[in-house]
Computed example of a mutant assay.
Amino acid sequence: MKAVGFKTSLPISEEESFIEFETAKPQPSGHELLVKISAISVNPVDFKIRQNSAKGTVLDTPKIIGWDAAGVVEAVGENVSLFSVGDKVYYAGDITKPGSNSEYQLIDERIVGKQPSTLADEAAAAMPLTVLTAWEIFFDRMRLSAERDQNKTLLIIGGAGGVGSIAIQIAKKVLGLKVIATASRPETIEWCQKMGADVVVNHRNLVEEVRGAGFQFVDFIVDFVDNNGYWDAMAELIKPQGHIASITGSAVPVALNKLKSKSVSFSWEFMYTRSTYQTDDMIEQHHILNRVAQLLDEGVLFHTHTHTLHGLSAETLKQAHAQLESGTTIGKWVIKY
C-alpha cells in the first residue's frame, strides 16, 4: 500500500520533510479493524510530532503520522463485535501506532465511530480528534452538565481553530453555556460568531477585553492555544470555585498556587490517554463518536471542514502542514484520497 511518512524531523520546506513509500498492507487481529481510508484531516499534533519525534536521527523505516480519518471497514479481527465489513467509519486513532497518512490503517474498534450519514467523507474526516477533545474536556475532565451549568459563562481561548470551532458548538448547543471566544482577525471573529459564540474578544489584551465585554469573572475557561502564555490572565478571570482546563501542555511547572485562594480546579485533557493506556473505559470514545454523529445528522452540530486538498502525496501533506504551522488556519483542512 502507499503511505507518506518521514525518516527525520525537517522543516516543512525541505524536500524530504515527507516522503512517499510502499509498505505491506496490514492484517487485523483481536479488536482491530482494517480501514480503507477515504479522507484524512490534519491537526497541530501532526506537525508537532513531525518536528520533534525524529530530531537529530534518521529512522530505518519511515514514520507514518496522522490522527483523523474517514473510511470503509475492509476486514476485521476475530474479536470485533461493533462493526462489520463495509461499514463507513470515522476516528482519531492511537498516537502509539502508525497513523492515517496511508491507504489502509489498523485501528481498535473501541475508538472508532459510525460515520455520520449526512456528511461527505471529507467533512467526516475533519471531526474526530476535535470532537473527542472538546467532548472529553467538558464532560470527562470538567464534569459539566446542562442541568447544573446551563447559562453559566465559558471562556474559550482559541475559538477559530479546529477544537475551538466544535467546542463553541457543544458548549452552546449541548450544554447551554454562555460562550465567550477569543479571536483577533475579522475572518476569525466572523467564524466564531458563525459557530455560535455569544461574545468574541481579542486574546491580545484578554483581561481587559473580557471585562470590557461585561464579565468580571467567568465560571469556566478552556485553553486551546498556550497554557503558559495565558496563565496569569486565566487565574485573574476565573470565578472563585471555577474550573480551568487545557490541552496545550507546559514546558515549565504550572503555577497552580495562583488558583489556591479562589479554590479553582484545573484539569489537563489529552485525547490519546484512553488508547495509550488501554483504559477500562476506552470504549467511551466509540460512544462519543456515535453520539456526535447523531448530533451532526440531526443538524444540532455542524462540521468544521473549510478546505480540501486532493490525493495522498508528500506534496499535499506538505501544503497542509505548512498551513497549520502558519497559525492562521480557520476550521479544518482535509485531504481527500
Rank of each mutant, 00 (worst) to 15 (best):
R148T: 14
T96E: 13
L312E: 08
R148M: 14
V201Y: 00
R143Y: 11
V42M: 15
L324Q: 08
L59R: 13
R185V: 07
M282F: 10
Q115T: 10
D121H: 10
L177A: 07
V42F: 07
D46G: 07
L10F: 09
H321C: 10
G71Y: 00
V252P: 15
N205C: 15
E74L: 05
A75V: 15
M271S: 01
L256E: 07
A213H: 01
T188P: 08
T130A: 13
F266I: 01
Y337H: 11
S275H: 14
D108A: 06
Q323F: 11
W268C: 13
G176R: 00
F18T: 03
E284S: 15
Q294C: 13
Y230A: 01
D46V: 05
S117G: 13
D280L: 11
V80P: 01
L175C: 09
T304A: 06
D280V: 14
F6C: 03
S53E: 13
N101Q: 10
S102A: 10
P62Y: 02
Q216S: 13
T118F: 05
V76Q: 03
E20D: 07
T276N: 12
I95P: 00
Q216P: 09
G229T: 11
D226S: 08
A126I: 00
M195Q: 11
T61A: 11
E22P: 06
K36L: 10
S267W: 09
E325C: 02
V222E: 14
T133C: 05
D94L: 10
V73P: 09
T133R: 05
N290K: 06
G56R: 09
L132D: 09
I247R: 05
A39H: 10
G164K: 00
G93C: 09
T153R: 14
R148I: 07
M1S: 00
E208A: 13
Y337R: 15
V112D: 01
S84W: 15
I288A: 00
F18L: 01
R141W: 13
L312F: 08
S29Y: 15
R291A: 10
G158F: 05
D46E: 03
I95S: 08
P116R: 07
A92T: 11
E22K: 04
S326M: 07
G214D: 02
